[in-house]
Computed example of a mutant assay.
Amino acid sequence: MYVLGIETSCDETAVAVYHSNRGLIAHTLHSQIPTHREYGGVVPELASRDHIRKLVPLIKCVLAEANLSADSINGIAYTAGPGLMGALLVGAAAARGLAWSWQIPAIAVHHMEGHLLAPMLEAEPPEFPFVALLISGGHTLLIEVEGIGRYRLLGESLDDAAGEAFDKTAKMLGLAYPGGPKLAELATFGRERFKFPRPMTDRPGLDFSFSGLKTFTLNALAATEQTQQDKADIAYAFQQAVADTLQIKCRRALQQTGLKTLVVAGGVSANQAIRAQLQTLTDRTGCRIYFPRPEFCTDNGAMIAYAGCQRLLAGQHQNLEIFARPRWPMEELLTI
C-alpha cells in the first residue's frame, strides 16, 4: 500500500510517500522560518497562506521523486490536529479533495501520534511496549505505549511545554527566531556558573512545569550585566535544568511502568544536550533509548504517512467530512 502523507499543522509544509512493505519512498519539506522570523514567532494567517501556495507543488514534487502517478496511491494521511486551525484546514481540505478525486480512502492523523511513531521509520525500530517522551513546542508528554493506538497518559506539562519554554527564554536573551536552536547553540559557550531549579522533581508524579523556570531565568539575567558570556552561562544553566528534569521524570516513568524501552521524539528531541542527558538512563536503568533521526524530529510528512498507513491497514478511514481539531487529546484516539 502506497500512502501519501500531508503535514500542515503549523509552520512547515511537508509531504511524503510511504509503502507498507518498502518503507519510506520519498519525502520533502518547506520551512516557513524566513516568513515568520521578522515577527519573532508564527503568524497563523501567514502560515495558512503559505501552506496554500506550497502544498500542491510539494505533492507533485514528492510523487515525481517517488516515480509514482496518482493512480499508484492507495490512501492519503493528513494531520488533523492538534495545531493551528487554519493551517490544519489547508492540509485536511487538500487531502479530502484528492481522496475523493482519486477514489481512495483518507485518514486523519494525530500530530503527536505521528511524532510518537517517528522512530518506527528507522532501520532498527523499537518494539512495543515502551515509554514515550514527546517534547515539542506545544507539548511535553509521557505516555505508556502498548501498541499503535493503545496509549496511556502518564504525565504532561501543566503550563508551558519544554519547547515553548526554550523559545520564550531565547527571546529573553535577545536571540532570533526560532529561539530553541539558537539557545542551544549559545549554551555551547556557557560555563557552570548558575544553579537553576529542576521543577517538580522534589515531589512525586510525572507532570511537568516550566513556567517557573522562565521566571528564574529572567531574575538571573536581571542580576547580571547581560554580557554575551552572561547570556551563554544562563543559556547553559537553563538547558541543563530542562534536560535534568526530563531525565528524572523519564527514569520515574520507567520505574513506575517496569518497562525497559524509552522512545524520545518531537522537535526538542533534536537537542543534543537533552539527548546526551537522557542517554545516561542506559547506564542507570539498563533500558534502551530510541530517537528519530534529526530530520524526523521536527514536523514532517514521513511520520504522518507512516501513522496513517498503519491505521489504513487496520481498516480505519474517515468519511467525506473535512476533519480538523486544533485541540485533540491523544486519549480519544481509536485503538487498532
Rank of each mutant, 00 (worst) to 15 (best):
residue 2 Y to G: 00
residue 3 V to D: 10
residue 6 I to N: 02
residue 6 I to C: 00
residue 6 I to R: 01
residue 7 E to S: 08
residue 7 E to H: 10
residue 9 S to T: 10
residue 9 S to F: 08
residue 10 C to Q: 07
residue 11 D to S: 04
residue 15 V to W: 05
residue 18 Y to V: 06
residue 22 R to P: 00
residue 27 H to E: 14
residue 32 Q to Y: 07
residue 36 H to E: 08
residue 43 V to K: 04
residue 43 V to H: 04
residue 44 P to G: 02
residue 46 L to W: 08
residue 57 P to K: 04
residue 59 I to G: 08
residue 68 L to K: 02
residue 68 L to S: 11
residue 70 A to N: 12
residue 70 A to T: 15
residue 71 D to R: 12
residue 75 G to F: 11
residue 80 A to E: 05
residue 80 A to P: 06
residue 80 A to N: 09
residue 83 G to P: 06
residue 103 Q to A: 13
residue 107 I to T: 00
residue 109 V to Q: 02
residue 111 H to E: 11
residue 111 H to L: 11
residue 112 M to D: 01
residue 115 H to A: 12
residue 119 P to D: 11
residue 131 V to H: 00
residue 131 V to L: 04
residue 131 V to F: 11
residue 132 A to C: 12
residue 140 T to L: 02
residue 143 I to A: 11
residue 144 E to L: 12
residue 149 G to Q: 01
residue 151 Y to M: 07
residue 159 D to F: 10
residue 166 F to Y: 14
residue 177 Y to M: 08
residue 182 K to H: 15
residue 185 E to P: 00
residue 188 T to V: 13
residue 189 F to S: 14
residue 189 F to Q: 15
residue 191 R to Y: 10
residue 192 E to N: 14
residue 192 E to H: 11
residue 194 F to A: 05
residue 199 P to I: 05
residue 199 P to G: 09
residue 200 M to S: 01
residue 200 M to N: 01
residue 203 R to F: 07
residue 205 G to W: 09
residue 208 F to I: 02
residue 209 S to W: 06
residue 212 G to E: 09
residue 215 T to I: 06
residue 216 F to W: 13
residue 222 A to F: 03
residue 223 A to E: 14
residue 225 E to A: 15
residue 228 Q to C: 01
residue 230 D to T: 08
residue 232 A to N: 07
residue 234 I to R: 01
residue 238 F to C: 07
residue 238 F to M: 04
residue 240 Q to I: 06
residue 242 V to F: 12
residue 242 V to L: 14
residue 245 T to W: 02
residue 247 Q to K: 15
residue 251 R to Q: 15
residue 253 A to C: 10
residue 256 Q to M: 13
residue 256 Q to V: 06
residue 256 Q to S: 14
residue 257 T to I: 09
residue 257 T to H: 07
residue 268 V to L: 05
residue 272 Q to H: 10
residue 276 A to Q: 13
residue 289 I to T: 00
residue 292 P to A: 02
residue 294 P to T: 01
residue 297 C to P: 11
residue 301 G to V: 12
residue 311 R to I: 02
residue 315 G to K: 03
residue 323 F to C: 08
residue 332 E to G: 10
residue 333 L to W: 07
residue 336 I to Q: 12
